[in-house]
């Protein structure tokens, strides 16, 4: 690895990009944040005193669809990174936008779901299920939102031709964030929706 360090004008002990180490550490930290949110949901599962309860409101087909969309957005994200690393400008533009677009579809499903729940009488204040469900999935949705804005900024840079192979690390780190948000959803899908 020392050859990589030597190639760089500056010294690093591992030859690894500093930003990437920092960002992985941040993702580790985020795991504890979502871990606590998921714990709270699990602890309060089945303890609500009044309805609606999860089986009354959940629509597994809709959530399966949005889960699939988010999974596929992760595929588009790795394709975007590949395109940027190869210097494929058209591919970069297409896949970056595609990832953000799929993320937006996911958020749209979530907005639809939240509105639907609201209309059948489930709000933040209704019961323990409402509080722990909306706060857990809401924080996840907020993360998706941040990711979409981030991807769109990269997309604009790609459109302007400011995103060449030398900027691959920027896309890689955005990708790490995006995939992390995806794996959090993989856990939420099972623990919240499937294990009712």
């Amino acid at each position: 690895m020392s050859h990589a360090a030597a190639a760089d004008a500056h010294h690093t002990s591992t030859g690894l990009p500093t930003w990437k180490i920092g960002f992985w550490t941040f993702i580790g930290s985020e795991s504890l944040f979502f871990g606590t949110l998921i714990s709270t949901y699990m602890v309060y599962k089945g303890r609500s005193l009044v309805g609606p309860y999860p089986p009354d409101v959940f629509s597994i087909p809709l959530t399966t669809l949005s889960t699939f969309v988010l999974l596929m957005s992760s595929l588009l994200m790795v394709l975007a990174l590949n395109a940027v690393q190869r210097g494929d400008r058209r591919g970069s533009i297409l896949w970056l936008f595609g990832t953000a677009f799929f993320g937006a579809i996911f958020l749209g499903c979530q907005a639809y779901e939240f509105t639907h729940f609201y209309h059948v009488g489930l709000t933040l204040q209704t019961n323990l299920f409402g509080s722990s469900f909306f706060i857990l999935t809401g924080f996840h949705g907020a993360h998706v939102m941040v990711g979409i804005v981030w991807l769109l900024i990269l997309w604009v840079m790609a459109l302007r031709g400011q995103l060449g192979p030398q900027d691959a690390l920027k896309v890689e780190i955005a990708g790490l964030y995006w995939h992390f948000v995806d794996v959090v959803w993989i856990a939420i899908f099972t623990l919240v929706y499937l294990l009712q």
């Binding site: 709270t40 602890v43 309060y44 303890r47 609500s48 005193l49 933040l124 204040q125 019961n127 323990l128 409402g130 509080s131 722990s132 706060i135």
Partner: peptide
């Protein structure tokens, strides 16, 4: 904060919270 500002039930014993 959400309990106080938005009326969620995380620590609301009346709603069954622990």
């Amino acid at each position: 904060t959400f309990d106080r500002a938005w009326g969620t039930n995380f620590y609301n014993v009346a709603a069954g919270a622990d």
